[in-house]
């Protein structure tokens, strides 16, 4: 995982609540056995006017001109601004893979669905929860200015807007640590290998039926 560093990035507004993971990456693209290449199919049903198939050359497909990511002013966006309960629905990790592969590093919303929240951080994608009011204000600012950017500083847990306003955000200490240092969870957990083995022994002695072999 890459280390998460402070950056200034263009913000794309997706003005929609309850964006589900089927919308982020439709099911036909889940058939890949790889972790990369999902970016061209991010928001496929919204982004293109035809029905997408895996492995297709997307550069030839008709674009939906009304969709925000197809508008010239939001090209190269790295921050996605959206509404409440983003990422609801299935546990597919293809959703954060697609967002990242497209080029997003940060998603800002008033709230996120649980499984998506976990999956995003495990892939280096920072999710920032702001109040409904703050999000509303950002939507207005983005709308008002072409090429609107935000300065995202995870270390200090703050966003600096183009007007110089500072928006502070909360992030769990462990997730922050992993993101800033690009750490892999498994390696960290295996440092506790002995504790896991000891627990396993005790657990098996107390409840042996949990360890039954296949009948």
């Amino acid at each position: 995982m890459k280390k998460f560093e402070r950056f200034e990035g263009v913000v794309a507004p997706l003005d929609r609540a309850n964006v589900d993971t089927d919308l982020i990456i439709p099911k036909q693209f889940l058939k890949s056995i790889k972790r990369t290449g999902f970016g061209v199919n991010l928001f496929d049903d919204l982004r293109y006017l035809d029905e997408g198939e895996p492995g297709q050359d997307c550069s030839q497909r008709p674009l939906n001109p009304d969709f925000v990511l197809n508008q010239p002013r939001y090209q190269n966006a790295e921050v996605l601004l959206t509404r409440r309960n983003f990422g609801c629905g299935s546990s597919r990790e293809h959703a954060p893979w697609a967002l990242e592969d497209f080029g997003f590093k940060v998603v800002i919303a008033p709230s996120f669905a649980d499984i998506f929240y976990n999956n995003a951080f495990k892939n280096g994608l920072l999710l920032i929860t702001l109040s409904e009011d703050e999000v509303e204000r950002l939507f207005n600012e983005v709308e008002a200015k072409d090429g609107y950017q935000l300065d995202i500083d995870l270390e200090q847990q703050r966003i600096i807007t183009q007007r110089g306003e500072i928006l502070e955000f909360e992030v769990d200490e462990f997730r922050k640590h992993c993101l800033l240092n690009g750490l892999d969870d498994i390696g960290i957990t295996l440092q506790d290998e002995e504790a896991i083995r000891a627990f396993e022994q005790k657990h098996k002695a107390a409840r042996p039926w949990l360890f039954r072999q296949t009948a």
């Binding site: 546990s91 597919r92 499984i115 999956n119 498994i186 896991i196 396993e200």
Partner: peptide, 17 residues
């Protein structure tokens, strides 16, 4: 439910973080 990174984590460590 868990994501794919967690599937790998559970396979490797028998634990969920």
């Amino acid at each position: 439910g868990i994501g794919t990174s967690e599937v790998e984590h559970v396979l490797a460590t028998q634990c969920l973080l």
